[in-house]
């Protein structure tokens, strides 16, 4: 795989997500709560698409619908023109073409790092055990995880854990990685290391990234595009293209263009955060 200096990964044909007019209404105790309101987003294959919005705005609802953890009330979601869910088939089947990297991390603490990474292919049963572990070992080496194969997730730093989790996802050749604010619990130094590591992994693997965050700096540094969401019910409010070429490194953060985009996005984000705050949404 070659490094690409341009906007997107050219020639990537799998992993396009189309969200069409999706509505999600929760009805837990008779009082219908609208979490997602007629939301349409088109994500081309290979894009890093950052979904930015205040906490509790319904971004995760959208992610869960794509992953197949719960259904949609109306609207359609397609992956590469194949229907994932619609009103007729409200809940998508979870599968290894769309893998979630969870907010608090979901490595199995009872499996060693390498067993975690080998989990997906072992369950699929298509490859031999030896082959799977060889692949796992080499992918771990690529991600700088050599030496931690036989440690348990609880024994390594949280930064390493996140990396193991991403490698666990990539082992399955997913089309899309869905990130649910995976770095929110990390300190800012670890976070910046993780961002560069994630980009590094992205340059080596052809995937589409759907990344939820409320950290604007993170969003601009990583993303091709920011989709700034309104506070609950959530739908796109403004789309910001980040025209800073990839591959990026941390020098980008101090570039004038970065500041400009930051300024452009910040006003919109703050407005929504304030609305969410006024509406009594907790900042969790």
């Amino acid at each position: 795989m070659n490094m690409i200096g341009e906007e997107m990964q050219p020639g990537l044909s799998k992993g396009a997500i189309r969200i069409e007019d999706v509505v999600k209404i929760y009805d837990p105790d008779g009082a219908a709560v609208m979490a997602v309101d007629h939301c349409s987003i088109d994500i081309p294959a290979g894009e890093i698409c950052m979904i930015v919005g205040p906490s509790g705005c319904g971004k995760t609802t959208l992610l869960n619908a794509i992953a197949g953890f719960h259904g949609v009330t109306s609207g359609h979601i397609y992956l590469d023109n194949e229907l994932l869910c619609s009103p007729e088939k409200p809940q998508a089947e979870p599968g290894s073409d769309r893998i979630v990297v969870f907010q608090n991390g979901a490595l199995f603490p009872w499996k060693t790092n390498i067993d975690n990474i080998a989990f997906g292919p072992l369950m699929a049963g298509k490859l031999g055990k030896k082959e799977i572990y060889e692949k796992a070992r080499s992918m771990m080496a690529d991600a700088g995880l050599s030496g931690t194969e036989n440690s348990y997730p609880g024994e390594v730093s949280s930064g390493l854990r996140r990396r193991v989790e991403i490698v666990r996802a990539l082992m399955n050749d997913p089309k899309v990685l869905l990130f649910d604010e995976p770095y929110r619990a990390l300190d800012s130094l670890t976070k910046s290391v993780m961002h560069e590591a994630l980009l590094d992994i992205y340059y080596k693997n052809k995937v589409t990234i759907f990344f939820i965050t409320h950290d604007l700096e993170e969003a601009i540094f990583l993303g091709h595009r920011l989709i700034i969401m309104t506070s609950r019910p959530c739908k796109p409010k403004k789309i910001v293209d980040v025209d800073i070429p990839h591959p990026r490194d941390y020098s980008v953060l101090t570039s004038p263009r970065f500041r400009e985009i930051m300024n452009e996005a910040k006003g919109v984000v703050n407005e929504e955060a304030k609305k969410a705050f006024d509406a009594g949404e907790r900042e969790g």
Partner: peptide, 24 residues
């Protein structure tokens, strides 16, 4: 999230029971 992760990674209901529910 553990069982969700297992489903994401392609595990069946029974595999999830064996690899997530029992050890968890």
């Amino acid at each position: 999230s553990y069982s969700r992760a297992a489903y994401c990674l392609g595990a069946s209901r029974w595999q999830t029971f064996k690899h997530v529910v029992v050890p968890g």
